[in-house]
């Protein structure tokens, strides 16, 4: 990418988008948002970073192969469903806990982890497609 402005701003933009994607993911249960849309935002962030700085640096920054990230998301989603089995409920029955941390009530639930799994699958799958398309002559 030749545009210097784009190359300069893309990393900041990507970071902002990633932070925003997590924000969207976490607020999803009560406000517009959720794992799917969050994942799409994160994937766009990686795609933009890839266009600006090259695929190799994205892969280096990610450490894991995007497909491995997607697979771990699928595993996380399944595990969050399995958790209800030993508790005597059927597969994927939501489990909730409201522990108090520093006086704040924190809403932890299996649907939250399920949604994080969705987020990871969407991020990983779309990013791996986008990156594979971006790197052209060398891989």
């Amino acid at each position: 990418m030749k545009s210097i402005i784009f190359r300069f701003t893309a990393p900041y933009l990507s970071v902002l988008m990633l932070v925003f994607s997590v924000f969207v993911l976490l607020r999803g249960h009560n406000e517009p948002g959720g794992g799917f849309i969050g994942g799409l935002i994160a994937a766009s962030a990686f795609a933009i970073y890839g266009i600006a700085a090259g695929v190799a640096s994205v892969r280096r920054a990610l450490t894991f192969h995007p497909m491995a990230i997607a697979a771990s998301g699928l595993v996380l989603a399944v595990l969050s469903g399995v958790l209800s089995l030993p508790l005597g409920d059927r597969f994927l029955t939501a489990q909730w806990a409201f522990p108090k941390i520093f006086g704040e009530e924190l809403a932890l639930s299996t649907p939250l982890f399920f949604d994080i799994g969705v987020y990871l699958v969407v991020t990983g799958a779309i990013t791996s497609i986008a990156l594979a398309l971006e790197e052209r002559d060398h891989d």
Binding site: G28, N30, E31, G34, G35, P111, F114, D115, V118
Partner: peptide, 14 residues
Amino acid sequence: IAHGHNIVNVIIVD
């Protein structure tokens, strides 16, 4: 029963 205000998201994840 699902502790969520965003009905769309509750449907998707729960």
